[in-house]
């Protein structure tokens, strides 16, 4: 008789302070019925990973507009692995050139969404790719 609910962290690594997009996304996820943990701007990969583990999220959505995604996103995945939390799915968004996608996939980022992607598409992707049933101790 359990009652699973998806938990998502929306995080903004790096130096840019524009979190309007991230906030819109966070609110949209709430309206989808997910529990959303929002941690604000200027987060280091270390802060993001620690919060994600303490919050036991199923998914981290990283948003980056500053162009530092090629360092920051893989760093998050790497730290998750180091902490034995590689089951947490990482996706990325923001201003990311097409030619960087493959590199990010290779580094363990599961999907990349660019501005203008309909939000419903992100939700569909999540519902298809993130499973919460097997979150055992």
């Amino acid at each position: 008789m359990s009652d699973r609910k998806l938990r998502i962290m929306v995080a903004k690594p790096g130096l840019d302070g524009h979190d309007r997009g991230a906030r819109i996304l966070a609110r949209y996820f709430r309206d989808c019925g997910y529990e959303v943990i929002y941690t604000g701007c200027h987060q280091t990969p270390e802060q993001i990973v620690e919060a994600a583990i303490q919050e036991d999220v199923d998914l981290i959505g990283l948003s980056c507009l500053s162009g530092a995604h090629k360092e920051l996103f893989p760093k998050v995945v790497k730290l998750l692995r180091e902490k034995g939390a590689e089951d947490i799915v990482v996706i990325g968004g923001g201003i990311i050139p097409k030619q960087d996608f493959q590199y990010l996939y290779d580094q363990g980022i599961k999907e990349v969404f660019t501005p203008g992607t309909p939000l419903e598409e992100i939700k569909e992707w999540i519902d298809k790719n993130v499973k919460v049933e097997d979150r055992i101790l």
């Binding site: 709430r30 989808c32 019925g33 529990e35 959303v36 929002y38 941690t39 802060q47 620690e50 919060a51």
Partner: peptide, 19 residues
């Protein structure tokens, strides 16, 4: 939210310096 069952949990924004 009583309408969607979702929640936006933002308290951590103010507490991230203890990482």
């Amino acid at each position: 939210s009583p309408f969607t069952g979702g929640a936006l949990l933002g308290d951590r924004v103010r507490m991230q310096n203890h990482a």
